[in-house]
Every structure is written in structure tokens, then in C-alpha cells.
Design a protein around this nucleic acid. Structure first.
Length: 295
DNA sequence: CGTCGACCTGGATG
DNA sequence: GCATCCAGGTCGA
């Protein structure tokens, strides 16, 4: 395993903040390093100083890192844009230095991972996905005292037994995972990836034809897995944050198809192409606040 | 259209 | 201990 170095200017990436706030699920701190699986590649990062060391198994470390953390995007200029468009974002930009919008290397992995998230919590989601990979994924590497597995293929998931997945703790999500795997097999080979080329609303509508994929999961897959920066996943955190901090007129209302769309439209009007990033700062701010005080 | 309950599970709360 | 609630929702009635 070759180790390479990459210049990372101070403040450009806060790795723990990026990988432990529910944008991705397969990262761990091990012996002072950070190791994460991206589909079938293992990336190991030592985020020290301004020349980080990177190694990878199953991929090239620098392209992998650059892709996952969208290093082509200059974070400072994003932050300037967000604050210019809505000064309330300054407090969240300040509170979350180095927070970046992540980009998965596999839309399929992203879809199946976010299918595990409804009515769930981060620790349990992480465990579920880890067990899924151990059970159905190909071993990729042994490192840091553990075995690392690729994310299971659609073919493998389509053959899984519901009882098997339930035994792994998936609950009612077991059936959805299998149904979605079979639905994907029934479509064109690159159907999911092709949604990246469609306009946002069309891609979202198409995704929501899959079982278990509602507006929120669809937006997660669009934003993190299909490069649709107009997507706004409105979950309980976003809903509460919007009511408390951004759109007081939402107070007393409930999250419906209408209010969901109202929020998405508001982001588009206010932030345009920076919508996804704006969402990420607001979401993470609320997530961390709720973790701090248990709310 | 908006509301309601069911759906798995495990940790937190009382 | 035991009931209840809730966590990055979705679906059908």
C-alpha cells in the first residue's frame, strides 16, 4: 500500500466533521488515522498539518480523496457565497469550519445506504451498513486490525433473504432493500447513474418510483450520490431548523408535500446552485446542536 | 390535500 | 424493571 502526500490548506477540510455527520457512514478513527470505505476502495487519511498522507486499497488515493471531498471546490468561496446570499448563514459557517459537501463514488451504494436511514439514528444506521457489507460484500483489505469489505453488489442484494437481513437488524427496511435491488435489475443497466443527467425535478420524480424512496431519501441520493446540487433533503433536523431559524412562518405547520416543496423552492430562490451546500451547513448545525443538548 | 397509524430496533427518558 | 418516546421516513387508508 503506497502512501502519498497531498497539500491541504488549513481550514479547507475538517475531516471528522465531514465524515461523522451523516453524509457518509463507513468512516472510522483508528490509531489516530481516519479510514473509510467508498464502495470497493479503502482510503486511509492522516489529517495532520497541511501535507496530509493518504493511502488506498482498490483505488488511487489522491483521485479518491479529491472526488469524495470535492476538492475542486474552493471552500472559502462557497462560504462567501452562502453568507452573501443570506447573512444568517455566517453563524453556521463560523461554527463549522472545514465542513464540506461530500460526494459518493457510487450512486448505488448511496441509494442503499440512505434506504437504511428512515426513522433511524446514526449509530444504528452505521452498524446496519457495516453488517450488510460484512455479510454480502467482498473482502477488500485487512488493515488496522479489521477486515474491510466492499459494498454489496445489486445482484447480491437482489438474492438476499429478507429473514437474513432482519437477523442483521434491518427491521422493516429488509424488504425494501431487496425490492429496490430487484427493481434496479429490471431497469436499464445504468438507469440510476443516468439520473445525474436529468433536470433535478425529473430525476427526483424518477427516483421516487422506487419502493421506500420518498422525497427525503431521493434528495439524499441526488445530493450526495448524483451530483444534483439543487437537492434539499428535508428531514426532522432540517424541518426544525427551518422553523426555528429561517422561516418562522412554518411554525405550527407540519411537514407535508407542500411545505417540503416550499422549502426546496425557497432554497433555490435564495441560494441557486449553492443550495446543496447551504443545506449542509444548516443541517449539520442543527444536528450538532441536538446532539449537544440531547434535545 | 392533511392527518394518522403501522412499521423494526435499540438507546434514552420517566 | 417497564412503558413510552424517538431517531436523517414512507406508505396506504
Amino acid at each position: 500500500m503506497k502512501t502519498v502526500r497531498l497539500s491541504v490548506p488549513a481550514g479547507e477540510v475538517n475531516l471528522p466533521l465531514c465524515v461523522r455527520t451523516g453524509q457518509v457512514f463507513r468512516w472510522y478513527e483508528i490509531q489516530g488515522l481516519w479510514a473509510g470505505m467508498a464502495n470497493d476502495a479503502l482510503l486511509i487519511v492522516n489529517p495532520e498539518g497541511n501535507r496530509w498522507s493518504l493511502s488506498a486499497v482498490g483505488g488511487e488515493p489522491i483521485p479518491l480523496f479529491t472526488h469524495l471531498f470535492r476538492m475542486e471546490v474552493d471552500l472559502k468561496s462557497v462560504q462567501v457565497q452562502l453568507i452573501r446570499r443570506d447573512s444568517r448563514w455566517e453563524q453556521w459557517v463560523r461554527a463549522l469550519p472545514g465542513l464540506r459537501l461530500m460526494r459518493w463514488t457510487s450512486a448505488t451504494e448511496c441509494l442503499f445506504s440512505f434506504l437504511c436511514t428512515p426513522a433511524n439514528n446514526l449509530p444504528r444506521i452505521t452498524g446496519m451498513i457495516e453488517r450488510l457489507c460484512e455479510r454480502y460484500g467482498t473482502p477488500i483489505a485487512e488493515w488496522g486490525g479489521r477486515q474491510w469489505h466492499a459494498f454489496p453488489t445489486v445482484e447480491r442484494l437482489a438474492q438476499a433473504e429478507e429473514a437474513d437481513l432482519r437477523a442483521l437488524g434491518f427491521g422493516y427496511r429488509a424488504r425494501t432493500l431487496i425490492e429496490v435491488a430487484r427493481a434496479l435489475q429490471a431497469r436499464e443497466p445504468n438507469w440510476l447513474e443516468s439520473l445525474a443527467e436529468l433536470p433535478y425535478w425529473d430525476a427526483k420524480q424518477a427516483l421516487m418510483t422506487l419502493p421506500g424512496v420518498g422525497a427525503k431519501v431521493a434528495d439524499c441520493v441526488l445530493l450526495f450520490g448524483l451530483n444534483h446540487n439543487l437537492a434539499v433533503p428535508v428531514d426532522t433536523h432540517m424541518w426544525q431548523a427551518m422553523q426555528k431559524w429561517v422561516l418562522p412562518e412554518l411554525r405550527g405547520k407540519s411537514l407535508t408535500e407542500r411545505t417540503y416543496r416550499q422549502i426546496v423552492d425557497w432554497f433555490h430562490e435564495r441560494f441557486g446552485e449553492w443550495t446543496g451546500w447551504a443545506h449542509q451547513y444548516l443541517f449539520t448545525a442543527h444536528l450538532l446542536e441536538s446532539q449537544r443538548k440531547g434535545e
